[in-house]
C-alpha cells in the first residue's frame, strides 16, 4: 500500500530514492526530505521501507479499499541475517511478531567470483553443460538428461 514519510524522522539521505523499483521515492525540493510522488504506481513492495536507516517510511493502505488504523512494520538486518515483521489489526485484536531468516551465510560471503575460477575446456564449451554442471544438477555422478538418455523423441502432431 502506498508509502509515506514521517517529516521528523527523514534526513533526506536518499537510500529510498536509490532503491525504489518504481522510481517514485523522490526528494521534495522544498523540505529536502523524501516522499512518494506517484502512490498509484506503488506496489507496497516495502523495498524503501527496508532500506531506510531511520525507519522514516511507513505504509498506509490504499485509500480506495483499505480502512485506516492498521500497521505492518518491518526491520531487516543483514548482519544478523533476519527480518522481523509486526502486524497490528485495525481492531487491535491481532498484534503479531513474525521473524524469518534472509540468509544462511554471512551476507554476500558465499557467492563465487567467476573471474577467478579456471576457464572451461573446449569440450565443455561444445557440450550442453553450464557452470558447475553436471555435478550441481544432482550432486552425484549423474550426467545431463537428454532425449536419448530418457528414451524420448520429439514428434510433430497432436499428442496429449
Amino acid at each position: 500500500m502506498p508509502t509515506f514519510v514521517y517529516m521528523t524522522r527523514c534526513d533526506g539521505c536518499g537510500h529510498c530514492v536509490d532503491i525504489c523499483p518504481s522510481d517514485i521515492m523522490h526528494i521534495d525540493e522544498v523540505n529536502r526530505r523524501a516522499y512518494n510522488i506517484e502512490p498509484n504506481m506503488c506496489w507496497e513492495c516495502y523495498s524503501c521501507v527496508k532500506a531506510c536507516p531511520h525507519h522514516a517510511i511507513d505504509v498506509r493502505g490504499y485509500a480506495d479499499f483499505a480502512p485506516l488504523g492498521h500497521s505492518v512494520r518491518v526491520r531487516r538486518d543483514e548482519e544478523k541475517g533476519v527480518i522481523a515483521w509486526r502486524i497490528i489489526f485495525r481492531n487491535g485484536k491481532k498484534d503479531w511478531d513474525l521473524l524469518a531468516p534472509i540468509t544462511t551465510k554471512p551476507w554476500g560471503s558465499a557467492i563465487p567470483n567467476l573471474k577467478s575460477v579456471p576457464a572451461p575446456s573446449q569440450e565443455q564449451r561444445d557440450s550442453q553443460l553450464l557452470y558447475n554442471e553436471p555435478k550441481y544438477i544432482r550432486l552425484d555422478d549423474g550426467g545431463l538428461h537428454t532425449l536419448e538418455s530418457n528414451g524420448l523423441k520429439m514428434k510433430e502432431g497432436v499428442y496429449y
Binding site: 502506498p2 523499483p21 518504481s22 502512490p39 498509484n40 504506481m41 506496489w43 507496497e44 490504499y62 480506495d64
Partner: peptide
C-alpha cells in the same frame, strides 16, 4: 485511484 499500483505483476 490510489490503489491502481496494486496489480498482480509488478507495476514496473
Amino acid at each position: 485511484g490510489e490503489g491502481a499500483g496494486r496489480v498482480w505483476y509488478a507495476p514496473w
